[in-house]
Design a binder for these strands. Sequence first.
DNA 1: GTGCACATGTAATGTGTTACATGATTAT
DNA 2: ATAATCATGTAACACATTACATGTGCAC
Lengths: 172, 172
Amino acid sequence: MLMGLLEPGPRSGYELRKALLGSPLKHFSESPGAIYPALRRLESNGWIAPLSEAPAGRGRRDLRLTPGGRAALVSWLRRPVTRDDVVWRLEELALRFAFLDSVLPPTAAPRFLEDFVKETAAYLEELRAFHRANAATMTLTGRLGFESGLALYAAKLGWGRRALRQLRRSPR
Amino acid sequence: MLMGLLEPGPRSGYELRKALLGSPLKHFSESPGAIYPALRRLESNGWIAPLSEAPAGRGRRDLRLTPGGRAALVSWLRRPVTRDDVVWRLEELALRFAFLDSVLPPTAAPRFLEDFVKETAAYLEELRAFHRANAATMTLTGRLGFESGLALYAAKLGWGRRALRQLRRSPR
DNA sequence: GTGCACATGTAATGTGTTACATGATTAT
DNA sequence: ATAATCATGTAACACATTACATGTGCAC
């Protein structure tokens, strides 16, 4: 995510943090204790680098994406959507999708959505089968709680289909 | 979650793990490296205890909820639903709700849902306001990705309202 | 020259992940 | 006896959280 935010141009860690604080969607950490160490790790991987080599001690430090970092970002965004992504990392998928068209060609987004819709539809069918088989044995709130998961995946599937239609109507 | 699963009666760590593996909804870890250390922590807190005091070396070890553990479980389930829960811990909320009626009196579930609906509706309105204000400046997939978050919270809100109506029709 | 926001960090702690190890029990 | 499955665990590593610390630059 940090590299995706650096893609349009260099920014400081503080600005990256402000960008996260500015979004009302809170699926990822925005604490300095997570962000600054993460930036150091990206730097020691050679994926980002300070804009000016001057040591500068403390104080503002602008960071840019290196060519290697861009390649790593691209390979993250290119990863096919798998069942495991849908089951375990649903919000990371939304994040990947959001960065898609600032880094990859416009064909990438519909391809992503096709995979997403396919995997989500299959998984939702599994959830419904489980519900049919086990609803009778569950407690009342246990069953309703499970149905909250069903509602979540049904909504994500609906979103994926709508988004796909929209992309096809306006392919830009 | 582990204490909630132990509430109906003593079970071994392996059985708890099988219960997690058996659910198609995967919002929480089911790895032995997470479960067994967590059980040890609960044990050292005095919240769970082995059923038989015999050392037993290796091999099956059945665990039961202690009175203190039950109290901790109850206080977790009784916690009011806050905005922060909705924003940061949506799936933990679904889990808490699922355990509600096996531990608390039947009035707890509608109260939970009233708070949930109120907080979720307010948050969803914030998300929509942000969308109105910023959709024009976003990239195409950036905007659609944000709308996937909108769809998620709209679905959870709809679920909460339906569940509340259902509880009121059949108060048991 | 002092307060305040800007900007970056660190230390302690807890815990999840991955991969591996090992003992116990049952069936063949 | 042996294999498979039951059952519990550990070690190395990475990382998030919380709370705190510290320097920088500007406005008044």
